[in-house]
Amino acid sequence: MSDRNPKRRQIDFPWWLLTIALLGAVLLWAIVNDTGYNEIFTVVSKGIWTTLWVAMLAFLLASVLGLLVALARTSDKVVLVQAATFYIEIVRGVPILVALFYIAFVGAPGMVEAGNILLSPLISHGWLPKLSIRNFDFTWRAIFALTLCYSAFIAEIFRAGIEAVDKGQIEAARALGLSGWNTFRHVVAPQALRTILPPLGNDFVSMIKDSALVSALGVQDITQLGKVYSSSNFKFFETYNVVAFLYLTMTISLSLLVRGLERYMARNRR
């Protein structure tokens, strides 16, 4: 039956997307035709690869670590459950920027010092050079920090997906003689994946935005290049227009992909 309510059709139309597209078209026209905007875009766009590289690698590592934490949180071992819960609560309770500074200026030097102690026999014999904090690039410190911060949130997504699987199916798989790993691989994982993919996509969009925090460490991403350029010629309005445009282009594109994935999975569930 067709929807005859015109108000509903008006609500369903993505006016917000049309508005953003018009604003983006105006800014894109300025980038193409205005010499100042064109120069800013040329400089700032060099940080796109760094932004995507940091976000994608950190999200991949966070997903792996989050899955391990989620498996520990849903295990039958009390020690693992308590340790995973402690990790999640501590990491989620610390602001990402604070964690970024802590890992970059406290955790990284501590890891280098611990590595020198563990490898001291090899270093003393001249078989390995002594590790230096200068060898620990700030980009990798930022990736490590984002990995730890997001792994706690992703672990809860994985846990929700695992616990959403009907317990009867798990018991039936074990009754058929499947091992714990085979039960997870053939029964739990395929069903949980359908549940967790949309929120994982939303978390990746958030990772793209939060990757701007790595500019606080001097990593040459979009935000850092915009900050350096605007501080040298005082074109703050134009520069941050371009910075916002680049972030919006990436995040809105990913958000639309996530929404399309949600609709596709919803149709396949019927």
Rank of each mutant, 00 (worst) to 15 (best):
D3L: 09
Q10T: 08
Q10M: 13
I11K: 10
P14I: 07
P14F: 00
L17E: 03
L18C: 04
T19A: 15
G24W: 00
V26Y: 04
W29V: 00
A30Q: 09
N33V: 06
Y37L: 06
N38F: 05
F41K: 02
K46P: 06
V54T: 04
V54N: 02
A55H: 02
M56Y: 05
L57Y: 06
L61M: 11
S63C: 07
V64C: 13
G66Q: 05
L71Q: 02
A72C: 14
D76G: 14
V78H: 11
V79L: 13
L80C: 10
A84W: 12
T85V: 14
T85G: 15
T85R: 15
Y87L: 11
Y87Q: 10
I88C: 04
V91R: 08
V91K: 06
R92I: 09
G93Y: 01
I103M: 05
F105I: 00
F105T: 02
G107K: 09
A108N: 04
G110A: 15
G110K: 15
S120P: 03
P121H: 15
L122F: 14
I123C: 13
G126Q: 15
I133G: 01
D137T: 11
T139I: 11
I143A: 09
L148Q: 05
S151Q: 11
A152G: 11
A155R: 02
A155C: 10
F158V: 12
A164L: 12
G168W: 09
Q169R: 10
I170E: 13
A172H: 14
A173K: 01
R174G: 08
R174D: 05
G180P: 00
H186M: 08
H186Y: 12
P190A: 11
R194G: 04
I196Q: 06
I196D: 06
L197A: 14
N202S: 10
D203Q: 13
D203F: 01
D203Y: 06
S206L: 14
K209A: 07
A212L: 01
A212Q: 03
A212E: 00
G218T: 04
D221T: 09
L225R: 10
K227D: 00
F234Y: 12
F236E: 05
T239M: 02
T239V: 12
V243E: 01
A244F: 00
F245H: 03
Y247G: 02
L248H: 03
I252H: 03
S253W: 07
S255F: 02
S255I: 01
L256T: 07
L257N: 05
R259A: 12
R259P: 07
L261D: 09
R263G: 10
M265C: 08
A266D: 12
N268H: 02
R270C: 04
